[in-house]
Design a protein around this nucleic acid. Structure first.
Length: 620
RNA sequence: CGGGGAGUGGCGCAGUUUGGUAGCGCGCAUGGUUUGGGACCAUGAGGCCCCGGGUUCAAGUCCCGGCUCCCCGACCA
């Protein structure tokens, strides 16, 4: 490609809209152009990168037996009503009617369509397992697009779906997909960490996310540097022993206060529920400070509102889901901990929970600042595992200005649900090895879900098993955002001057630059360019009549891995200059050895991003 | 959807406080001088100052309404 003919232009200054380095560099390089919030054009250089990323994805999916297909972006809403998601998903799904008035949607993902295909074409256990994938546009009307290509509304995703006879076959295959995902990221030059994640709107039993770790990431990851435990904060757990046993005992040892303080402050014996006046002490800190008790010895009571879940099969009743009254749930946990709303929703088996509004609490007769489940009727109570039935706590008395001491969960109030509903904190003990956990931020480039039979059972995708019985297929689904991966490639491969493309995805492998306007330089470069094009080399040839500074700055910004420079100065010695983008120092190379040197560099650059023997052999 | 900010040649910005001929840098065009890190000289083109209404002799500037975009949250590949 001749630079002088290339559509697009580099920018000298940082565009005002740029939010993060990859965004700025892609804009300045003239590779992307925003059309609307979260909707981007891809210019020629970026599109070449996209095609290379897609091909790496294809190779890795094919290597684990995937078969590429293509499913539509516009779906009849009926399919989404069948799975029930038409009613569960909010305004992020674009809905419209076609000219005949039929309800249609834009695809946010393709579980419904692929499950429809599976039920039509796979009827026997002999047809299983199989995996199909596509690289296709999705549209999600995100509330807040951001970060250039990191969070957009229209995006291309590689999505794969596998179908199995049983869970153990899915488990086996799932590992292969995870390995393939690691290969894709490695080949694209993006380091990722695989973390446990929430199943989200996909449903299912287990899920992982593949995260590029960066302070600019949108997700918080909980990592154990010691044993490798890694989870999204939404689902991260902590070692309960460390939390409630050892630490609490240590705390009590340090603070002769502890339970004695409770009796001391109130004059009551241990083991009895007593009401104490705590005027104006309407926060955990105030109450505990006042009573001289550690917050770990107090019960925090939170009120959440939930909608009844629109579960399973579709039904006309769901149409009015929005009008349903919200049920209030009391959540109790140790006073020093915070509620993890994601875990709470999962425990209650609802899509989401929301903190109750002050009006709702008032209407229900609850007293903010002095709440507890003690003596209240008509509320479901969720107790976090951090509360022990053999300990006593300070809790609200449900009366302005009063608290209770000596409260025992279970004895003094009933517990309907018991589970892990707390947020893991930095420094909490790792659930696997007990060492302190660390927090990082990350961008999710891919995810994998064990869907199980959520879609196959609701949509009737069954197969006849060897035993003659019809069973729902066991499914997995696996997504990876192409544009988001591109953004992460830039994030992970750049310096202050510009992008440093890994050769595996670089728009062009070689950037040929001339300096000066002398005929000899021009003729030499033209000859080299013509020869390389003939040989099929990927070369961007900067043939512009620009000053040296402009051309070199552009070469750094655009970031092709190998730069070949021809000038009067180099030709004086019958040489050209060869430089890797990632290296500081250029090398002089005789004209006669140029092709050999470049070919070797191309090969060695590819070697840096190879996955070697770690790629699994095709299984099918 | 809450809270904050911004819309002025292609890009980055000033001008708005105090209403009075729309500016600067980069880019673009033409000619010339240059050519190892975003050169220089000269000449030139390019604007419904986001949209609609209002106040005024006069609105980029003041008032009302709307739209779009950005940031921080809530939400997600």
């Amino acid at each position: 490609m001749r630079f002088s003919r290339m559509f697009g232009k580099t920018l000298r200054s940082k565009p005002a809209e740029a939010e993060m380095p990859s965004h700025e560099l892609l804009l300045r390089a003239g590779m992307i152009a925003r059309l609307a919030a979260g909707i981007y054009n891809y210019m020629p250089l970026a599109w070449r990168v996209v095609r290379k990323i897609e091909n790496i994805m294809r190779e890795e999916m094919d290597a684990i037996g995937g078969q590429e297909i293509n499913m539509p972006v516009v779906h009849p809403a009926d399919l989404w009503k069948e799975s029930g998601r038409y009613f569960d998903i909010g305004p992020e799904m674009v809905r419209f009617r076609d000219r005949t008035g039929r309800d249609m949607v834009l695809a946010m993902t393709h579980e419904e369509t692929v499950t429809d295909l599976a039920r039509r074409f796979a009827g026997s256990y002999r047809d299983l397992p199989f995996m199909v994938y596509q690289i296709q546009t999705k549209f999600r009307d995100e509330p807040r697009p951001r970060g250039g290509l990191v969070r957009v509304r229209e995006f291309v995703m590689k999505d794969a779906y596998s179908f199995h006879r049983d869970a153990s076959d899915l488990d086996r295959y799932y590992e292969e997909v995870c390995a393939a995902y690691r290969n894709i990221c490695r080949r694209c030059g993006v380091p990722v960490v695989q973390v446990l994640s929430d199943v989200g709107m996909m449903g299912g039993s287990q899920a992982h996310e593949f995260m590029y770790v960066t302070p600019l990431g949108e997700d918080t990851l909980v990592l154990c540097p010691e044993c490798g435990y890694a989870a999204n904060r939404e689902v991260a757990t902590v070692a309960r022993d460390g939390l409630e046993g050892l630490q609490l005992r240590a705390e009590n040892a340090d603070h002769p206060g502890g339970r004695e303080a409770i009796s001391g402050a109130t004059g009551v014996r241990e083991g009895k529920l007593e009401k104490v006046a705590t005027p104006g002490k309407n926060t955990i800190d105030l109450v505990c400070g006042y009573l001289g008790v550690s917050p770990k010895r107090s019960i925090k009571t939170m009120v959440y509102a939930v909608h009844a879940r629109t579960e399973g099969h579709a039904g006309a009743a769901k149409e009015k889901a929005g009008s349903k009254k919200r049920e209030l749930v009391l959540v109790v946990l140790r006073g020093d901990l915070e509620v993890n709303e994601r875990k709470l929703a999962n425990l209650l088996r609802v899509g989401e929970v929301e903190p109750a509004t002050p009006e709702e609490m008032k209407e229900a007769g609850l007293v903010p600042g002095y709440m507890s489940p003690v003596g209240l009727k008509g509320f479901k109570v969720v107790a976090d595992l951090s509360l022990r039935e053999d300990e006593e706590y300070v809790a609200g008395a449900n009366e302005e200005g009063y608290h209770l001491t000596g409260v025992r969960p279970g004895r003094d109030f009933p517990v309907d649900y018991r589970g892990d509903v707390i947020v893991a904190r930095e420094g909490d003990p790792c659930p696997r090895c007990g060492k302190p956990l660390k927090w990082e931020r990350g961008i999710e480039v891919g995810n994998t879900f064990k869907l199980g039979v959520k879609y196959s059972s609701s949509m009737g995708a069954t197969f006849r098993d060897e035993d003659g019985r019809d069973k729902p297929m066991v499914m997995g689904c696996y997504g990876m955002g192409v544009g988001r991966l591109l953004a992460c490639i830039v994030e992970a491969n750049r310096d202050s001057s510009g992008i440093m493309w890994p050769i595996t995805v670089a728009p062009y492998q070689i950037h040929l630059v001339t300096l000066g306007a002398s005929p000899r330089v021009r003729e030499t470069a033209e000859a080299v360019y013509a020869r390389w094009i003939r040989e099929g080399k990927e070369v961007l040839y900067d043939d512009r009549d620009e000053s040296a500074g402009v051309k070199l700055k552009d070469a750094d910004l655009l970031g092709m891995p190998i730069r070949v420079l021809i000038s009067d100065r180099t030709l004086a010695d019958e040489q050209v200059e060869v430089k890797l983008r990632r290296d500081e120092a250029p090398k002089r190379v005789g004209l006669g050895e140029l092709d050999k040197v470049v070919s070797e560099l191309v090969a060695s650059e590819f070697e840096r991003f190879s996955v070697g023997a770690s790629r699994p052999a095709a299984e099918y």
